[in-house]
Write a protein that binds this DNA or RNA. Structure first.
Lengths: 96, 96
DNA sequence: TTGACATGCAAGTCCAAACTTGCATATCGT
DNA sequence: ACGATATGCAAGTTTGGACTTGCATGTCAA
């Protein structure tokens, strides 16, 4: 499984996760349209496709193939690894 | 406040957070030594310094100046924004 | 089978960011 | 004051990654 942190580094990929979080099982074309309209993302189909590849390798997006369609869904499970890697310690961090 | 996601994207910066999570209030030199020995990080002092700048801008590292020393500490609070942005939804994500 | 639709792949371009290099500043002990 | 220590800054180099471009593959409806 590829690097989840690198996958989250790109703002377009975060917008993809935002959109998939609102609506599951979207195809590449669906995503392209909705990203452009609702998230102001002006990326080409190929660019979004490559972003989906990175997200899929990081385990953040799951894909179901049906005929000529690929339905994409978000998987938030890998995100837990982040807060588990640097857990908050009692009374050490809190805001000033 | 700069991009927390971009700050986490670099493996050396994550090692810095790992080290600061183990031991708070480290100076730049302390960090350089410990990173090399315990985390296999072979970066120059200047490189680490620049990484600390990025982490500080992202709010993940706090600095206390005392004389000629700069003590660095981790602040895990901004990490919450990640899991709060894409919260797990009941019965939608779970593993197959 | 044929054309339209949905996606896949790979080489090339371009820019941000990581790293280096060299010197400057500031603080402490003697 | 002077040397040693700890950090700061900025310009230059280099590498990784985002994006483009062009074509290939695969699926469906007629």
């Amino acid at each position: 499984m590829a690097d989840i942190y690198r996958a989250l580094a790109d703002p377009t990929r975060r917008a993809v996760l935002d959109e998939l979080h609102e609506r599951d099982r979207q195809t590449l074309f669906e995503l392209c349209g909705r990203l452009a309209v609702k998230h102001g993302v002006a990326s080409s189909r190929q660019a979004i496709s490559q972003h989906l590849g990175v997200l899929e390798e990081a385990g953040l997006v799951r894909v179901e193939r049906e005929g000529r369609y690929r339905f994409h869904s978000i998987d938030t499970a890998p995100l837990r690894a982040i807060t588990e890697r640097w857990p908050a310690r009692q009374g050490k961090d809190g805001p000033s």
